[in-house]
């Protein structure tokens, strides 16, 4: 078979494990895993851009476009097949990113961040005015069907969970492959020194554009999966606070490994749940302190914990 690297093996092996966990774990935990896979994909999209030195403070734009595209396909065209919904969400995101990319590819650093934020907030403003789409309250999405099969009750929950796990992890594995490809390494070069990159005969603009479109497509996928898990979409998906969270998750998790944002999203979600449980009135403070401590003691993100262990293990085996 293809030469899979360790991360890819882990991801592919993770699919059956996650699905199995869906039957073993209590349902509420499975729920958080499911929504975390959706939002985790967006954090992943933020992370691959971050590797190229681009911090998107507006990734919620494509998260929202994906969710709304799928939702509107269901609401107005009566499409309920999950495969079609996923494809619609991704295609619409890709198309929007293709257009917006011509503008955004000229920007770097904070300007890229703020311009992406501006675009996402313009969509927020538009959606907040559209009463057909429920304005800020958004609208509900019916349960999906699978090639004509329309499960109910617990079967529907498991089916949707499985249908979330497979595309999410496959997508992560593909992204890993992309990052290891020449195109992916151009990202690193972009961050390090754009001018040298150009001297080498590659167009930095084109590289950014492609990266941006890939990130948008992944976010669109995340948006569809998240919206289906929730059964509801609203403009909050493209608010800057949502986009901000994606950035924070990817920094907290660390940009070292593709699995980190997926895992980090879930961990952060669970931390939040327990912070709310422990202190419903001041949970934000707890979250803030945990974030600060993470940054101080784990500057390379949560993932560095695992890496460090790995490194020391390898050291001992070498000896």
């Amino acid at each position: 078979m293809m030469n899979l690297d360790r991360t890819e093996k882990l991801l592919l092996a993770g699919i059956p494990i996650l699905i199995l966990l869906g039957f073993v774990l209590p349902e509420w935990v499975v729920n958080y895993i499911q929504v975390s896979l959706g939002t985790g994909l967006v954090a992943l999209a933020v992370m691959i851009q971050m590797r190229a030195g681009l911090v998107s403070f507006g990734q919620g734009l494509y998260f929202c476009i994906g969710g709304y595209a799928a939702g509107m396909a269901g609401k107005f065209m009566g499409v309920s097949d999950i495969f079609i919904l996923l494809i619609i969400g991704m295609l619409v995101s890709l198309f929007m990113a293709f257009i917006a990319g011509f503008l955004l590819r000229r920007y770097r650093e904070i300007f890229f961040a703020m311009l992406s934020l501006a675009l996402s907030m313009i969509l927020y403003g538009l959606l907040s005015k559209l009463e057909v789409l429920g304005s800020t309250d958004g609208f509900n999405i019916p349960s999906p069907t699978y090639l004509g099969w329309a499960p109910e009750g617990d079967t529907a929950k498991h089916a949707l969970y499985i249908a979330t796990c497979i595309p999410a992890l496959l997508c992560a594995a593909l992204l890993n492959r992309y990052l290891r490809s020449p195109m992916g390494f151009i990202g690193e070069a972009l961050r390090e020194n754009e001018i040298r990159l150009e001297y080498l005969g590659t167009s930095a603009h084109r590289a950014v554009h492609i990266k941006y479109m890939i990130a948008a497509t992944v976010s669109g996928l995340g948006g569809v999966l998240w919206a289906l898990a929730l059964g509801h979409v609203d403009p909050e998906m493209t608010n800057w606070t949502t986009s901000g969270q994606f950035v924070f998750i990817s920094i907290l998790s660390g940009v070292g490994n593709i699995v980190a944002p997926l895992f980090g999203t879930f961990i952060l979600e669970i931390v939040r749940v327990y912070a709310v449980e422990a202190s419903p009135n001041t949970w934000q403070m707890i979250l803030g302190v945990i974030m600060l401590l993470t940054i101080i003691f784990l500057p390379k993100g949560l993932w560095s914990l695992i890496q460090r262990k790995k490194a020391s293990a390898e050291e001992t085996t070498q000896k």
């Binding site: 924070f248 907290l252 934000q284 403070m285 979250l287 803030g288």
Partner: peptide
């Protein structure tokens, strides 16, 4: 991110 954490605490 650091200042965001501080912001949450201040809130």
């Amino acid at each position: 991110l650091v200042t965001y954490a501080i912001f949450l605490i201040l809130e």
